[in-house]
């Protein structure tokens, strides 16, 4: 949450730099009254929902007891962090979160771009609109529904097993949720299915902004479809790709909560639990709010570090960047 405000801030700052310098006068302020009110609302939102809750971080350094509150719980320094990192489960949970985060990022990111470009190549407007609408509808389904569908489809008597058996590819139904090895691919698949269409909208918007005369010129020079995608479309949306990639990198540790929580079971808990589930389990269920907060802080810090690193790399290579 903190990260998202940070990004928002730098994006705003960045776009501001590009504008010509304006002297701030009362007249100017009056003229931009509406804009100022709108941005004030957003700043206020950020302060209330992103910065004020940070005061709760104090809990991580206390042996927090709800009865005593933040001000009267005993201070324990870094003890909760030590406890956290000496717990083998937490280390495993970090691994799971990172792994699923990276896999999800890679597949949803690439699929969205590929899908947007493919969609752009469709010439019939009606077909294009229809496909686009259908493809982004799953975004509006909640995870509980998506996981319900997955659970049914992948069960022993579900459609996938039925089909595989009908085609003679397997003899016995495969119990997909009983094998730890299948869990990450299933999660990645669900993410792709749910979000590809939605994520592609941004790229489609960026593609629309490419000057059509570029395509004409390329066509005259003898560029086929493939060459036009490669030399016009991709470079045209490169800035968008970079910005979105940078933002997603900061989000890697938000690998998810609902899907893993809802699809997981005892057999696959070694690969299914993410940091968020750990926080729920030890922070909320076991009542160790301090430990949960410590895990949350760790997650935020790693996210910030990741985004700074990614930004530096982009900067070195002269790419579009956040700050």
């Amino acid at each position: 949450m903190f990260v998202c405000l940070l990004i928002y801030g730098v994006v705003m700052a960045k776009t501001k730099i590009k504008e010509p310098k304006i002297q701030i006068t009362w007249k100017e302020v009056r003229r931009q009254k509406v804009l100022l009110i709108w941005s004030a609302a957003i700043v206020l939102y950020g302060v209330i929902f992103c910065y004020l809750p940070l005061a709760g971080w104090a809990m991580a350094f206390e042996n927090f007891r709800p009865k005593d509150g933040i001000f009267h719980s005993p201070f324990v320094g870094m003890a909760k962090f030590q406890q956290l990192f000496s717990d083998a489960t937490f280390i495993r949970v970090i691994r799971n979160t990172l792994a699923m985060g990276v896999i999800n990022l890679a597949v949803t990111f690439i699929m969205a771009i590929v899908f947007a470009i493919l969609l752009n190549e469709i010439t019939s407007k009606g077909a294009k609109k229809t496909v686009q609408t259908i493809s982004y509808l799953p975004h509006f389904l909640s995870w509980i529904i998506v996981t319900g569908i997955l659970h049914d489809a992948l069960s022993g008597t579900g459609i996938i097993n039925e089909m595989l058996m009908r085609f003679g590819m397997i003899q016995q139904p495969v119990d997909f949720f009983a094998h730890p090895g299948y869990f990450w691919p299933i999660v990645a698949f669900a993410n792709v299915w749910k979000e590809t269409g939605w994520n592609a909208i941004i790229y489609l918007a960026a593609i629309t902004a490419i000057d059509p005369s570029l395509y004409e010129a390329a066509a005259i020079d003898g560029a086929g479809r493939w060459a036009r995608i490669k030399y016009v479309t991709l470079p045209g949306i490169r800035a968008t790709i970079m910005i979105l990639l940078l933002m997603s990198v900061g989000n890697v540790l938000n690998a998810g909560f609902e899907i893993q929580y809802l699809l997981g079971n005892g057999l696959v808990q070694g690969v299914s639990q993410t940091i968020d589930i750990y926080v729920l389990k030890w922070g909320i269920s076991q009542g160790d709010y301090a430990l949960g907060t410590a895990a949350g802080i760790f997650k935020s810090l790693v996210s910030i570090i990741l985004i700074v690193i990614a930004n530096q790399i982009a900067k070195r290579n002269g790419e579009e960047r956040l700050f």
């Binding site: 991580a60 933002m247 935020s300």
Partner: peptide, 16 residues
Amino acid sequence: TVSMMAGCGSAGTASG
């Protein structure tokens, strides 16, 4: 992106 992230961000707060 910001609006999307704001939407999902609230689930992972440290405040519990």
